[in-house]
Design a protein around this nucleic acid. Structure first.
Length: 271
DNA sequence: ACGAAGCCCTGCAAGC
DNA sequence: TGCTTGCAGGGCTTCG
């Protein structure tokens, strides 16, 4: 379940191995991901040097002169750095083989992830071009969020998880951010005042940046076989804590379903 | 235009 | 112990 911090950490982890290195081959063992892997197009990248890497929302973008790779980890995807000779395991669907003898190995049991190709600017790709601002950018502020919310009657939790509003706020961090800002997840987005959106924006930024920090430490070594996402080890206050005492007031954390996703909150602290 | 629901997929946990 | 069932979730797609 990689959320934005895990994706950012993944990007940082693979960067040293990819940047300025040559792609020798891209081996696709199973093209049936969220969308079919375009094997033919990917072969255009053979022999290309990776000129830069970036991230947009939860997409990792790998740029070369001949085009870019667009990688999404879905909810069960992960990558590792391996010796290219290492025998692939179950669900190791794609290898980006490098001249260095190393490979970036993509594993995704549930195959909700994707690997796509873009011959021009990947930010113009149709999966990406309509997305809202990055949560950690200056563009994402209370003024913006308040304005966006005025004609939206959806629950605020769904609202902040809407990629057209803001990207990278997944189910876990949505619950956490709302807890930090004292806002009940079920409240309609258009019923929330601007001062409360100030708090919410600050909480989202805080939760995500802290997670990136801790992800950076727990995921430092991408050559380890158990490069598990880091958020398990970090301090979640309400997510998955149904029945536990609220860390602020001690009341029992509640679990409800909003928009077919489980949500956690404190009925006393969050109004 | 918006909002709600459906769908893809596998691993794991719970129930029998 | 071994089956079946249900649940989890990102985000696009479809339906109302």
């Amino acid at each position: 379940m990689p959320e934005l911090p895990e994706v950012e950490t993944t990007l940082r982890g693979i960067k040293p191995y990819l940047l300025n290195n040559t792609i020798q081959d891209i081996v696709v063992r199973n093209p049936s991901l969220r969308w079919p892997v375009p094997v033919e197009q990917l072969s255009l990248l053979k022999g290309c040097i990776v000129s830069s890497l970036s991230r947009r929302a939860k997409y990792v973008l790998i740029h070369t002169q001949n085009g870019s790779l667009i990688l999404h980890l879905g909810m069960s995807g992960s990558v590792r750095i391996v010796d290219s000779s290492l025998e692939p395991g179950k669900h190791d669907h794609v290898d980006i083989v490098l001249n260095s003898g190393k490979s970036i190995r993509f594993n995704d049991p549930r195959r909700f992830g994707c690997l796509l190709f873009s011959s021009s600017d990947p930010l113009k790709h149709q999966l990406i071009n309509h997305l809202g601002p990055e949560p950690l950018s200056d563009e994402f502020d209370a003024e913006y969020l308040y304005k966006q919310s005025r004609n939206r009657s959806v629950a605020v939790k769904n609202f902040i998880m809407d990629g057209k509003v803001v990207v990278g706020v997944g189910n876990i961090y949505a619950s956490e951010s709302l807890f930090l800002s004292g806002i009940r997840p079920t409240i309609a987005a258009n019923k929330i005042s601007k001062p409360r959106y100030e708090k919410l924006v600050a909480s989202i930024k805080q939760v995500l940046s802290k997670a990136i920090e801790s992800g950076g430490t727990s995921l430092r070594d991408f050559t380890q076989s158990d490069g598990k996402p880091g958020y398990f080890g970090q301090e979640l206050r309400v997510y998955g804590k149904e029945g536990d005492p609220c860390p602020r007031c001690g009341a029992k954390i509640k679990q409800i379903v909003i928009g077919q996703r489980s949500s956690f909150y404190c009925a006393k602290c969050q109004r």
